[in-house]
Structures are given as C-alpha cells and as structure tokens.
Amino acid sequence: MDKKLIKKMVKNCFLQYSPGDEETVTLSEEEFEMMYSKISQMKMREPNVDLYEIVHDVVYDFLIN
C-alpha cells in the first residue's frame, strides 16, 4: 500500500473528527507507523473492505483509547 496515501487519509480523518487547521493534527511518526501497520493488516485480512472504512476505524479506535 502507498504509505503517502495512507498518511494523507489518516490526516484527513483526524481533521474530520476535530475540525481545524492541519497544524492541530499532532501525530508522531511512531503513532503513524503503528496505525499504518494496523491498516495494512486489516486490509490484508479483509481485502473487500474499503480502505476508507479501515482508516476511519483505526483512527477512531486511536482517538477513543
């Protein structure tokens, strides 16, 4: 999967949950790598699920935990 695309999708998802400026999205590289890994694993397990849905699930889980 294209890491740049996933990073952009994650950032956009964060902005949807907390509207504001892009600079308000504070996500360390380590946090992104963890999310990227989860997204990749979920996509491999469930190839028919839309990537958009997976990204939203992972970001939501990250925000509530």
Rank of each mutant, 00 (worst) to 15 (best):
M1A: 14
M1Y: 05
D2T: 05
K3G: 06
K4G: 06
K4W: 05
K4V: 07
K4L: 12
L5C: 03
L5Q: 11
I6L: 13
K7Q: 12
K7D: 03
K7N: 03
K7G: 00
K8W: 04
K8V: 13
M9L: 15
M9N: 02
V10T: 04
V10C: 09
K11G: 02
K11R: 14
C13V: 03
C13N: 01
F14E: 00
F14I: 01
L15Q: 03
L15F: 08
L15D: 01
L15W: 00
Q16L: 10
Q16W: 04
Y17V: 02
Y17I: 02
Y17R: 04
Y17L: 11
S18F: 11
S18N: 12
P19N: 13
P19V: 12
D21T: 13
D21G: 11
D21V: 14
E22G: 08
E22C: 08
E22D: 15
E22I: 12
T24V: 08
T26R: 10
T26Q: 11
L27K: 03
S28P: 07
S28F: 03
E29N: 15
E30I: 11
E30G: 09
E30L: 14
E30N: 14
E31D: 15
F32I: 11
E33Y: 09
E33T: 09
M34H: 08
M34L: 13
M35S: 00
Y36Q: 04
Y36S: 06
Y36M: 02
Y36P: 01
S37W: 03
K38N: 09
K38M: 13
S40T: 14
Q41Y: 09
M42G: 00
K43H: 06
K43Q: 15
K43P: 01
R45K: 11
R45C: 07
R45S: 10
E46Q: 14
E46S: 10
E46I: 07
P47E: 10
N48T: 14
N48W: 05
V49W: 03
V49A: 07
D50A: 13
D50I: 08
D50T: 06
D50V: 11
Y52D: 14
Y52L: 09
Y52G: 04
Y52F: 14
Y52P: 00
E53C: 08
E53K: 07
I54V: 15
I54E: 00
V55W: 02
H56S: 10
D57A: 12
V58Y: 04
V59R: 00
V59K: 02
D61W: 01
F62T: 06
F62W: 11
L63F: 01
I64G: 01
N65R: 09
N65T: 03
